[in-house]
Nucleic acid binder design. Structure first.
Lengths: 204, 204
DNA sequence: CCTGGTTGGATAGTGTTGCTACCCAATGTT
DNA sequence: AACATTGGGTAGCAACACTATCCAACCAGG
């Protein structure tokens, strides 16, 4: 398969495929001459992954590259791959040395143990700070319920990881970590809509 | 309070405050002369809200304006305000006439009733399609568990809405809808990390 | 062997976004 | 009177994700 067929089959302009190649999101094809390269099915599926991460996944090209590096790096364990993926994903900005106390207290109440420097911990602290700054500090009860629900989801995510090939597991973890986020957010909004309808009946 | 004090107290450059005024994110101050205007505490709190929506909330200026319009429009009910906020938020792109079947089936299993044209429904369908395109079609079981967890969260969100002033309720709904999203995503990642640690023990 | 279209590789240009810098005359402040 | 600040406006900028164009090297068909 040449670049034009790859692009056509993926529904992506050739110029964009070249761009992804330059940016290292897509591995180069096998060169068969100075102006010819061959691409395989794995390029097609990788291109689909790239488009999913950049579009619905909402990642920037730079972040997607970091995430894909995590996919490509041979991992020694699923746990490590998860950590690598989390580290590649954008947390809260590089600024904001948010205070971690409230976040840590929440983890303690849930009995969760995470790395001291977990990017997700920092992200949580930053998000809580933003809520306080916006004048809507969340109650402990609300946070606990959120954490309980998140706990079930995290449990489910980890339980669903295929145990066969490690490479498959890593890809699965990365794809699901990123692409189930919009699913979760959409479900939350749908649940809000349904709950709001039930709580305020007859309220068109 | 003049613009420089407003900017200083909010920790935002004056030029940026002017930009927000131009963009209609911040209502104009009370003019006290051709080159003088007075701003109040409500401007300060609004500015905090704007920064929270644009930064941690991850909204674009255009989306934030739409969301803030929903906050400002006198609502006749919390349910309507929630709908307005959801409509203002970015769903899946304007393209993607994704097929809604899987999403609708999920809602039916959960017993949720939402508007036929709910933007969240479209967003869900788009997100599911992206997962399929990326080669990781989610199992029904996984989606059901996600939906159950999302259901608890939506319930909690609606239950937490203050019932006193309608305007307060609307603001609360909008702020929490947007700013609890990063909280939820961070909690999910923390839960994944904890679950992964428990499932793969001794796995540094 | 000739011709026309395609390729890899490179460089430059485009449109959008979220500011940021500068300018001006009018106005406060001292 | 001297000086800084303001509102209002315009212009510039850096990052981002492409997109367009060019070029020599090819390969495939006739």
């Amino acid at each position: 398969m040449q670049i034009s067929e790859l692009a056509r089959r993926a529904g992506v302009p050739v110029a964009t495929v070249k761009y992804y190649l330059r940016e290292g999101l897509l591995p180069p094809g096998e060169l068969t001459g100075a102006t010819r390269a061959r691409y395989g099915e794995e390029h097609l599926s990788r291109l689909g992954l790239v488009r999913a991460l950049l579009g619905p996944g909402g990642l920037s090209v730079a972040t997607a590259r970091a995430v894909l590096d995590a996919v490509d790096t041979p991992a020694t364990s699923v746990h490590q791959a998860l950590g690598a993926a989390h580290r590649a994903l954008p947390g809260v900005g590089p600024d904001a040395p948010a205070d971690l106390d409230q976040a840590r207290a929440l983890l303690r109440r849930q009995g969760w143990q995470v790395a001291e420097d977990s990017p997700a911990l920092r992200a949580l602290a930053g998000a809580l700070e933003a809520l306080r700054a916006a004048g809507s500090p969340p109650s402990e009860e609300l946070l606990d319920r959120y954490a309980e629900a998140a706990g079930r989801i995290g449990e489910q995510d980890v339980a669903a990881v295929p145990t066969g090939s490690l490479a498959d597991a890593v890809r699965f973890v990365v794809v699901n970590t990123v692409l189930l986020e919009p699913v979760l957010l959409a479900l939350r909004r749908l649940a809000q809509e349904d709950a709001s309808r039930r709580r305020f009946p007859g309220d068109r």
